[in-house]
Design a protein around this nucleic acid. Structure first.
Length: 702
DNA sequence: GAGCACTGC
């Protein structure tokens, strides 16, 4: 039927154990009302709990938590650790005397959904005995809540108010193998806490097999060499998933986009029922595969193929309603094919996936500590990632994973992904650590220490912003206040200065809007055809102003408020309604912090210059000037930069001087969120910075 | 002149 099928040759070297991650769902279901159980259902719930693999280890887990200060639990997918272990601890009395059992999750949805599930299992009203705390949403009761789920970022925030975490008796760090930035910060902080000040606090680190040893060595405080004095125990709980057969290509594929299309068609032609999930690196690849497959699907329909293909894209930038389509059930005559970015590796779980196609690549953030520039780079995945992707096919029944690379190439992949801590701009991390009383950040016990050069960059920037003094100490009040903002230090500085510039009202809106991605809707083919003949960019140009993206965002927000925050109005102007609602929430939180620090409420009353000057006071380090070659150059190190095509300044008559929020490197270095400024403002507002080379050499660590 | 992986406070 489809000619190129024959080119895809796979073989199966033997079966491989599937995924490693705990169960996670994105669903729209919410259980707002309490469920009252009768004794009969209560019994069956109890029986279900006993059937989970983790139940066999109940007494052993409790014994380990009694005996060791830290316990590493290697819990495979579906073992039930996230919901059961907190209950075992509760039943054993760990939440007595008002103490709380805390469980962290890297993502907000996971914290909410798992809290929901547990409350339901216990027949309790969410927010009482079982609760959760995430930014903007505290569904817990300071007196009644015994088991609390929270994001790991939230735990770090809580430590700013209560460094010893006095209310907790046990903390369980779930999904620690993901090594997100905040998990790693929490791990470093908690080691110090349990070692120095809270010998009674128990720590459970839930991780995948691969990292268990590393965690154990990190948390073992025993230096005597006598294993009887170890302070860290370890336990493995087998999972409950179905086997996934892994197939490799016989020879390397030259083009994984094409190979993905061919493999989907091969599966459709030769395999039994079951939906397909294909991993690619970005929006562009996803859309290309989707359109190629849709074309093929129509051709197959004309040839009278009984079974239909329903092809759906999935990536974070996709409008919410389109995202929800991948969770819809399909009739038996239809095979669903989800073409996704890495969002489907951990963040979302789609039921019914049997076949997985893995291209071996992912787009990852990288940070260059010498230039202070972050970039997005297509990188080969790790073995752990490959295993996680394969496991997406074994959740409901036995699955198959087609890897678009040879077994030989698989063996060359790194064991695990470089932790985020080692590939990010550290300025926000350092500021937080300083605020938490870590004076010598260079000697902080990082599970994986970041490059020293990244630390130096971060210290220099924080010094230039006035958050640290020349000895690297947090300044009071500026540094202390900056650390309280849930934003990068540059934004915090801009906000704190805005009262003095006379434009705090406008700046708080701008800062909030800049936290939202995709305020302007992405162009999905369907929306354009139905609703308008104009290209999307023309709709968005209505809000654009010559000064640049910051004031354009202010315009959008003010227009949204003027039109009574109407979703209808957003739709007409292709604006992201959910995003704008979120901007309102963020704005409110920032406003509260501004009030707390007594930043005067002032308005520029239509004068753009004061706003622009205020932006410069925070973002002076990100300045560029027009070079005679026609492109921009950074002021600091004369590096070539370009205006990002999504900027309102793209395609406009260039201005001589600009500041920007960030640089993203793809095919070129692109400045995102760009605003035109006067060079005299830079000199006036940051005279110290452009002579900084001398100053930074004198900076010392106490 | 041409393009944003994914989280989180």
């Amino acid at each position: 039927m489809a000619a190129p099928l024959s080119t895809m040759k796979f073989w199966k070297p033997g079966s491989e154990a599937p995924g490693i991650s705990e169960e996670r769902h994105v669903t729209t279901e919410t259980t707002g009302s309490p469920i009252i159980f009768n004794p009969h259902t209560a019994l069956s719930i109890e029986k279900q709990r006993q059937k989970l693999p983790v139940f066999k280890h109940r007494n052993n887990i409790l014994y380990l938590v009694e005996s060791y200060q830290t316990v590493i639990i290697v819990g495979e997918t579906g073992c039930g650790k996230t919901t059961q272990i907190p209950q075992y601890l509760l039943e054993a009395g760990w939440a007595a005397e008002g103490k709380v059992i805390g469980v962290t999750q890297p993502r907000r949805v996971a914290a909410i959904s798992v809290a929901n599930r547990l409350a339901e299992e216990r027949g309790a009203l969410l927010g009482h005995e079982v609760g959760y705390t995430i930014r903007f949403d505290d569904c817990s009761d300071p007196h009644a809540t015994r088991i609390k789920f929270l994001t790991d970022g939230m735990l770090v925030r809580e430590m700013m108010a209560d460094p010893l975490l006095k209310k907790y008796s046990v903390l369980m760090l779930d999904e620690a193998h993901e090594r997100t930035l905040y998990t790693d910060i929490a791990i470093g902080l908690l080691k110090k806490v349990i070692q120095k000040k809270r010998r009674d606090l128990r720590l459970i680190v839930a991780s995948a097999t691969l990292d268990a040893k590393k965690f154990q060595e990190f948390f073992n405080l025993n230096e005597t060499g006598d294993p009887n004095k170890d302070t860290c125990g370890i336990l493995t709980v087998e999972g409950r998933t179905f086997p996934v057969d892994v197939f490799y290509t016989v020879s390397p594929v030259p083009d994984y986009v094409k190979a993905t299309v061919e493999t989907v068609l091969k599966i459709h032609e030769t395999e039994d029922d079951g939906d397909v999930l294909a991993f690619l690196t970005g929006q562009e690849e996803v859309e290309k595969v989707v359109s190629l497959l849709q074309e093929q699907a129509r051709a197959l329909g004309r040839l009278g193929m009984k079974k239909y293909l329903k092809v759906l894209p999935m990536y974070a930038g996709l409008p919410y309603t389109d995202q929800m389509k991948v969770f819809e059930r399909t009739p038996p005559t239809v095979r669903k094919v989800v073409v996704a970015t890495n969002i489907a590796e951990t963040s979302i779980t789609i039921n019914g996936i049997v076949f997985v196609i893995d291209c071996a690549f992912v787009k990852l953030r990288a940070y260059n500590p010498c230039t202070a520039i972050e970039s997005l780079v297509v990188t080969p995945i790790s073995k752990a990632s490959a295993s996680q992707r394969a496991g997406r096919g074994g959740r409901n029944r036995a699955g198959k994973c087609f890897r678009l690379y040879t077994e030989e190439d698989f063996e060359k992949l790194p064991a695990s992904t470089v932790p985020e801590m080692q590939r990010t701009n550290l300025a926000p991390v350092i500021l937080q650590l300083k605020a938490l009383g870590i004076d010598n950040v260079l000697r902080f016990s990082f599970l994986s220490p970041p490059p020293a050069q990244s630390m130096v960059q971060a210290l220099e920037l924080l010094y230039a912003l006035g958050g640290l003094d020349q000895y690297g100490r947090l300044t009071d009040p500026m540094g202390v206040r900056m650390a309280e903002f849930p934003l990068s230090p540059m934004f915090a500085k801009m906000l704190l200065e805005s009262g003095n510039f006379g434009c705090s009202k406008e700046i708080v809106t701008i800062a909030a809007m800049m936290q939202i991605q995709n305020i302007f809707m992405v162009s999905t083919a369907s929306t354009i055809l139905i609703t308008s003949r104009l290209p999307l960019c023309l709709h968005h140009r209505k809000f654009a102003v010559a000064e640049g993206d910051h004031l354009t965002m202010l315009n959008v927000y003010e227009a949204f408020i003027k039109h009574q925050k109407s979703s209808q109005w957003c739709q007409e102007h292709f604006l992201n309604y959910k995003g704008l609602q979120r901007a309102m929430t963020v704005r409110e939180q920032l406003r509260r912090l501004m009030n707390k620090f007594k930043v005067p409420r002032t308005s520029s009353e239509g004068d753009p210059d004061v706003i622009l000057r205020c932006i410069v006071s925070g973002f002076f380090a990100n300045a560029a000037r027009m070079h005679h070659s026609g492109s921009y150059r950074t002021l600091r190190d004369d590096r070539e930069l370009h205006i990002h095509p999504n900027s309102v300044l793209f395609g406009e008559k260039p201005t001589k001087w600009v500041v920007f929020n960030e640089v993203v490197q793809t095919s070129k270095y692109y400045m995102r969120d760009v605003t035109a400024v006067e060079s005299s403002w830079l000199v006036e507002l940051a005279p110290h910075f452009y002579k900084q080379a001398k100053v930074s050499r004198t900076m010392k660590q106490p």
